[in-house]
Nucleic acid binder design. Structure first.
Length: 606
DNA sequence: AAAAAAG
């Protein structure tokens, strides 16, 4: 295994002596005899000097809190066998006493893996937070009697145990989506929340759920041997995301007695079954494995009080909808009104909102405009690259990053491709050419997927080639660059993909390769970039103009998505022309906003 | 058309 970028490039230089594959040749050495080591000429990006004004793309931690790169990882490296199944107090569902009881298993401290944070640094960082900018964030709510937002966690008063966990998580002040969503949820209302990636959504739905379960601590649950009766169900579209939510929820529920269990496919089911038998209050799951568990009658949904769908628009799109309907409507889950339903996503097309309304009862719609966390911290670039030139162009970019020193151990590049096959091919190509890459996609085993993610996060392989499996929700610190090697066909997917960078208050760069096969994306992409105050190349504007008359109004954003979204109940249902969208809005939130986050505090944003 | 999610 290569251990660092430099090592691997060295190796490639040596390897290139062998008459094997065509090794990558940096631009300045092409058509020359390959010498041992490329001279230290800093290759620079080919275009858009303006971009470098925004993103000082010349060093690690390009964001304004420069040198402080260590951020508590919250122990998420434990995707493997230990974390999600491990620990927690026993007791449980078929114990007539409601909440999980401690059966003598010591609850693992989910915070102990966190990197120790230098207190003085922490303090200094926290005072730099520009909380005033919160007030400028556009928020729209609609529905009957919407509970008012709060400004502090203290106003919510979640109780001693949860307050302590807030502190352990270093959450000082609620993020906008939390300010609104938590009171709404605590009031028992159903909720559709549209808030951009990295805006603190997980905590926004977890805290009310945990708090509610604690209040119903003594609710009677049926005794059925080997059947678990969770009170809350959280569904997510990918296994890795369900792990991540589980890890977060473990922290939020530490020492509350509320037991969180995760279940997903690709991993041995027996361990998950054992964990369920020990009792579960909150079940985090992917749909396929949950259906399996329901059919085996190892899980019953009849005690469900809370249902949360993360990435809800994805959960209700064509691929997932039947499974979700089966779980929500055709098993033993209480109907809307008898349970509380919370839907969260960064994007929410109105057609999908229509489907979602089947699951909801008198819900509140919440849209939070861009919150300074994500898209205004992302510099977006589009480059015209022929299909046949993509690989060499990508390697030029990667090489330039290395020359510029960006690829320190902590600076990561995430490359999205369209197909699983394409991911394998590109990974292989990069490795052969000496770039330390790995890949993640649905044809790899779960073990391989988790290994790839760990290796990427740790910086061992600072390049990750991925399909859309990695597009949504994953919080990977230090991703400095997202490359859309193949553009997606849906602008929402693009939004989710680029949201993997620009996190934790750091700047991020997103580069897209565009060519004739992406014509349908010209208009939506150029509109999106324009709304985000990005520099749109003239050639892209021309493509956009050309594509707009031709037919398909593919640009669902054109209508009125300047905001964080709009409640589809306010418009004629199912008409085209508006999308619900919590990503880039055309808002002038000052660009300096992201600069002052504290490292611990920013982690509240997912 | 592809990806994800059960085995």
């Amino acid at each position: 295994m290569t251990t660092s970028w430099a090592d691997s490039v060295d190796n490639s230089a040596k390897a290139s002596v062998r008459p094997t594959r065509s090794a990558y040749v940096p631009p300045h050495l092409r058509n020359q005899k390959l010498s041992s080591e490329p001279p230290a000429v800093a290759a620079s990006y080919s275009s858009s000097a303006a971009a470098s004004d925004h993103v000082s793309y010349g060093g690690p931690a390009a964001g304004s809190h420069g040198g402080i790169s260590s951020k508590p990882d919250f122990g998420r490296q434990g995707y493997g066998s230990n974390a999600q199944i491990g620990g927690g107090s026993g007791g449980g569902g078929w114990n007539a006493r409601g909440i999980a009881r401690d059966r003598g298993r010591r609850e693992v401290n989910p915070f102990e893996k966190d990197e120790p944070v230098d207190q003085s640094l922490d303090e200094q960082e926290n005072t730099g937070i520009n909380f005033d900018a919160y007030d400028d964030i556009p928020v729209e709510t609609s529905g009957d009697n919407v509970p008012p937002p709060v400004n502090t966690f203290a106003e919510i008063d979640l109780g001693e145990a949860l307050n302590q966990n807030l502190q352990r998580c270093k959450y000082v002040k609620p993020t906008p989506v939390q300010r609104y969503a938590i009171p709404i949820s605590l009031a028992g209302r159903d909720l559709v929340a549209c808030a951009q990636t990295g805006s603190g959504k997980t905590a926004a739905f977890c805290f009310p759920i945990i708090s509610g379960i604690m209040r119903e601590q003594y609710a009677q649950r049926p005794r059925v041997a080997r059947t678990a009766f969770p009170m809350a169900l959280i569904l997510a579209p990918t296994r890795e995301l369900s792990c991540q939510i589980h890890d977060e929820a473990k922290k939020f529920s530490y020492q509350t007695g509320v037991k969180v269990v995760v279940a997903y496919g690709g991993a041995p089911i027996n361990q998950q079954l054992r964990e369920l038998e020990r009792g579960v209050d909150i079940l985090v799951a992917t749909p396929g494995r949950l259906v399996d568990l329901l059919e085996r009658a190892r899980v019953s949904l009849q005690m469900i009080r809370y249902l949360a769908l993360d990435e809800a628009d994805r959960m209700l799109d064509m691929g997932f909808e039947p499974q979700i309907r089966k779980i929500v409507e055709q098993m033993d889950m209480p109907p809307p009104g008898m349970r509380q339903t919370l839907l969260f996503s960064a994007t929410f097309p109105k057609e999908i909102q229509g489907l979602a309304s089947d699951f909801l009862s008198n819900y509140v719609f919440l849209a939070v405009g861009r919150v300074g966390s994500s898209t205004d911290l992302i510099v977006q670039r589009v480059e015209y690259v022929l299909e046949s030139d993509k690989r060499s162009h990508l390697m030029d970019l990667l090489h330039a990053q290395r020359e510029n020193g960006v690829h320190g151990k902590q600076s990561l590049t995430l490359v999205f491709v369209e197909t699983k096959k394409g991911a394998d091919a590109l990974e292989h190509c990069l490795c052969v050419n000496g770039f330390p890459a790995t890949s993640i996609h649905g044809d790899r085993s779960q073990q391989e997927r988790e290994l790839a993610l760990r290796s990427f996060k740790s910086g061992n392989t600072p390049i990750l080639v991925a399909t859309d499996v990695a597009a949504r929700g994953l919080d990977i610190p230090r991703v400095a660059h997202v490359v859309n090697f193949d553009l997606p066909n849906d602008i929402d997917d693009y939004v989710h993909r680029i949201g993997r960078t620009g996190r934790a208050g750091k700047m991020g760069l997103a580069t897209a390769f565009f060519n004739e096969s992406n014509l349908s994306m010209a208009k939506p992409l150029s509109d999106l970039m324009q709304e985000a105050n990005q520099e749109v190349p003239a050639w892209l504007t021309r493509y956009a103009a050309r594509s707009s008359y031709g037919g398909g109004n593919r640009n669902r954003r054109s209508g009125g998505a300047r905001f964080g979204g709009r409640d589809f109940r306010k418009e004629g249902s199912f008409n085209k022309g508006g999308d619900y969208y919590g990503g880039t809005g055309g808002y002038g939130v000052p660009g300096n906003y992201g600069g002052g986050y504290g490292q611990g505090v920013t982690s509240a944003w997912d």
